[in-house]
């Protein structure tokens, strides 16, 4: 009855149960955090804007991104993945989301920063619809926990406008 195997089994089962309970509690505690992020994205320059030989429009932008995501961090946060995407509608597509820049924030100390950058990923349309196009820039974040549920949300900045002519 009280053999070695029996006791070892009971011990391991108990340890795993406690560990699972603590992981779930850590994940649940994230819900008590009410984040107050701030973000500002500016398009400083249209570097060039052209039609590719295959007919797709491509544009190169210079962006200024300043964010404060330090309120995202709790004790269960491993890192926050942040990215800026251009979002717009075309006659062909109900939604186009093109990621322009992204970064990984490893800790709370690095969560308030600004960056001056050209688009990291190519801003290419499916077709030739970008001349004179209005688009939104959305700052998305994706909170990756040490354990448990992942969170994501975004701030939408609207009112950006591409030039009428290629340059």
């Amino acid at each position: 009855m009280h053999s070695f195997g029996y006791r070892a089994n009971a011990l391991v089962t108990f340890a795993v149960t406690i560990l699972a309970a603590m992981c779930s509690l850590a994940s649940l505690s994230d819900n008590f955090n009410v984040p107050t992020p701030t973000a500002d994205v500016k398009v400083l320059n249209i570097n060039w804007f052209q039609k590719q030989p295959n007919g797709n429009d491509e544009v190169s932008l210079t962006l200024n991104i300043s964010v404060d995501l330090s309120s995202m961090f709790t004790w269960n946060t491993k890192q926050v993945f942040v990215f800026v995407a251009a979002e717009y509608e075309t006659p062909q597509n109900a939604l186009n989301q093109v990621s322009l820049w992204d970064g990984i924030i490893p800790s709370k100390e690095h969560a308030k920063f600004w960056i001056h950058t050209t688009n990291k990923y190519r801003f290419i349309d499916q077709g030739s619809n970008l001349r004179g196009k209005d688009f939104n820039l959305t700052l998305h974040w994706h909170v990756m926990p040490k354990t448990g549920k992942m969170f994501a949300d975004k701030i939408v900045k609207s009112g950006y406008h591409l030039p009428e002519e290629y340059r």
Binding site: F81, Q92, A94, L95, Q97, Y121
Partner: peptide, 10 residues
């Protein structure tokens, strides 16, 4: 992997 671009048909 992570999704970086989405184009959804009308």
């Amino acid at each position: 992997h992570r999704v970086i671009k989405v184009h959804e048909r009308q």
